[in-house]
Amino acid sequence: MSIAEDQVRQQLGDFSSIVCFKAVVVGIEEALGEKAAAIALISAGRQRGKKLAEDLGLNNKGSEISLEDVSIKVSSVLGKDGTRLCIIDKMEQDGEVYKVYTRETVCSAGEPQGSPRQCTFTLGAIQGFLESFLAKRLRGKQIESVLRGGEQDVFEFSVLR
């Protein structure tokens, strides 16, 4: 199903501005506090990611499709030809640890250098997708940020036992 076929709004389409999204994030942080807001945003992202895996027919397919092929499919849906959440450059696996290299994340957009902002929603979306794809529970963390000198926003996911 293409985005146009499932469009929610007749004239404005399915997309909103980064400015509005960031206002929601800041408002949630002010209302709940930074840690509770991070938990809520990661959870919301995870739900989005799980739905994405389901929509792409990639849930529980971890051993059937290469991580490289999955990366290409997810990147097209979340990147410039999709919802524009972020660009995924690559996904890597080292044993039970997965790393996802992203850029132009919605969470980092417009933030000043040195900002402590974390990519909570984006991390959650990728985590939820990977959890659904791999049929495994993961713990995610951001290990590199463009806001703090990194070349990319990099997320690391470890399999929980």
Rank of each mutant, 00 (worst) to 15 (best):
G45V: 10
Q93P: 02
T122R: 01
Q113D: 13
R103S: 06
E64C: 06
G62K: 12
S43R: 14
I3G: 05
F15Y: 08
G13A: 09
A23K: 03
G27N: 03
S115T: 02
A23T: 00
G33K: 06
Q11W: 12
E131A: 02
F133D: 04
I18K: 15
E54G: 03
Q118P: 00
D69L: 11
Q11M: 14
E64P: 01
Q142H: 06
A38C: 07
L123S: 00
I88V: 12
I18E: 04
G62W: 15
L67Q: 08
K141Q: 13
I87N: 11
V19Y: 12
C107Y: 08
R46L: 01
C20T: 10
Q127M: 11
L85V: 01
E30D: 10
A135Q: 05
G128Y: 12
R148N: 07
C107L: 09
P112T: 05
S17H: 14
D6G: 08
L138S: 03
R103F: 05
L58I: 09
L41N: 00
T105L: 06
L85P: 00
A38T: 04
G79M: 14
Y98V: 14
L52D: 00
D69W: 10
K90M: 07
I88T: 03
K61G: 04
V26L: 06
K90S: 05
L67T: 11
S66T: 12
S158P: 07
L138M: 04
F21S: 04
E144Y: 15
S108I: 05
V8S: 10
A38G: 02
K35L: 15
E111D: 00
D14N: 15
R117M: 04
N60C: 03
Q11T: 09
S63R: 15
S145D: 01
L123H: 01
E111M: 15
S16G: 13
Y101K: 13
I143L: 09
D89W: 13
I18S: 11
D55M: 13
G110M: 07
M1P: 00
A37F: 05
I39N: 08
R9F: 15
I126Y: 05
Q118W: 08
I87K: 15
V26Y: 06
D153Q: 09
G110C: 07
S71L: 02
A4F: 10
V25R: 10
Q142W: 12
T83I: 15
A38Q: 05
L123R: 04
E131W: 06
S108G: 07
L85S: 03
A4V: 09
E29W: 01
L52S: 02
A125W: 12
R148M: 07
E64D: 10
S115I: 04
D81P: 02
S132C: 14
G114R: 03
L85Q: 02
K80F: 10
L56R: 09
F157K: 14
E111C: 11
E144L: 14
A4Y: 08
G57T: 13
V74M: 14
V74C: 04
R9I: 05
K51H: 14
L123F: 03
V106T: 00
L134N: 07
A31W: 06
R48L: 03
R148D: 00
D14Y: 15
R84K: 15
T83Y: 14
L138C: 01
A23M: 06
V159W: 06
